[in-house]
């Protein structure tokens, strides 16, 4: 465990654990509401926000957060109007915002290195200042997810019944999209734009494979995300791999392990009955 004696590695582990917990909690609703594609869309759209921030001389993470939220709300608004399907709206904004990001960054060669960092993540470069901002963004996401967990669950399971029960479904939908945009921006440093959408699905998929209740799914999801961060950073240290890719690969390995465990469990059940 020599790698834990370095300050940058301790910061990376702390940031990764907090972001892993945030992503894993949100991922339960991403899976329930079949929002994986919107996760891909928002993560790629965030690049446009980063590029705008760099071009305008504004700190890129807050710029990406505001830009991502704006895109999320516009997608939500267009989808609710029902004239364009959600998939189409996401496809349009995702590609346009990403194209804007690439175009702006290509205008200044100085930003090329930044572009790679945002695309693939570099959690080992998280400094003390970044750490504070990332913790704040994570708290802003986890807080409402915990407080309104039962409402988000009801909304995901049966939106009509939730409306009939008097829940403010429009507001909750907006809140969930906002949390998603903030979480994605916060996670860019961890695994990068390309891989963050995977982290918004895989831990919950692992959780749902092993659990028999929503509570169990949340616990397995959180556990697998934290373990992925720890083992991913360790692998990254041992074999000099990019941290984001290592974390996502470990997360995927845990999913396949969970899948094998469930298949074995079901075979036993089948043989026993």
């Amino acid at each position: 465990m020599e790698f834990l004696s370095y300050g940058f590695m301790q910061r990376a582990l702390l940031t990764g654990t907090v972001l892993g917990v945030t992503c894993a909690l949100l991922a339960v609703f991403v899976v329930l509401r079949r929002m994986a594609f919107i996760g891909v869309g928002l993560s790629h759209a965030a690049l446009g926000g980063v590029a705008l921030g760099l071009t305008l001389g504004v700190p890129p993470l807050p710029a990406a957060a505001v830009f991502g939220m704006a895109i999320a709300w516009v997608i939500g608004w267009i989808t609710r109007r029902g004239e364009v399907s959600a998939d189409t709206a996401i496809g349009i904004f995702f590609s346009t915002a990403m194209a804007l990001g690439v175009a702006l960054m290509s205008l200044s060669p100085a930003y090329r290195q930044d572009l790679l960092g945002y695309l693939f993540g570099n959690i080992l470069s998280v400094g003390p200042k970044d750490l504070g901002l990332l913790l704040l963004l994570s708290a802003a996401s986890v807080g409402p997810l915990v407080v309104f967990f039962k409402e988000f669950l009801f909304l995901g399971v049966d939106e009509e019944a939730a409306k009939a029960a008097g829940l403010p479904t429009g507001l909750l939908n907006h809140l969930l999209l906002t949390i998603m945009a903030v979480t994605i921006v916060a996670s860019m440093k961890l695994v990068g734009i390309v891989l963050v959408s995977a982290f918004l699905v895989i831990p919950a998929a692992t959780g749902q494979t092993l659990a028999e209740s929503v509570r169990g799914m949340v616990l397995w999801s959180l556990g697998s995300a934290v373990l992925s961060v720890f083992l991913g950073l360790w692998a990254s240290w041992l074999w000099n791999l990019p941290s984001g890719a290592s974390i996502v690969l470990v997360s995927a390995a845990l999913f396949f392990l969970a899948y094998a465990v469930r298949a074995r469990r079901q075979r036993r059940k089948g043989a026993g009955s």
């Binding site: 407080v147 309104f148 409402e151 669950l153 009801f154 399971v157 028999e212 799914m217």
Partner: peptide, 20 residues
């Protein structure tokens, strides 16, 4: 999705509980 029967029925109590 591992939604249990008990958790689903519990949703019928949410309107009386209030937000959060």
């Amino acid at each position: 999705f591992p939604l249990s029967v008990g958790d689903l029925v519990l949703m019928g109590r949410y309107p009386t509980l209030g937000l959060g």
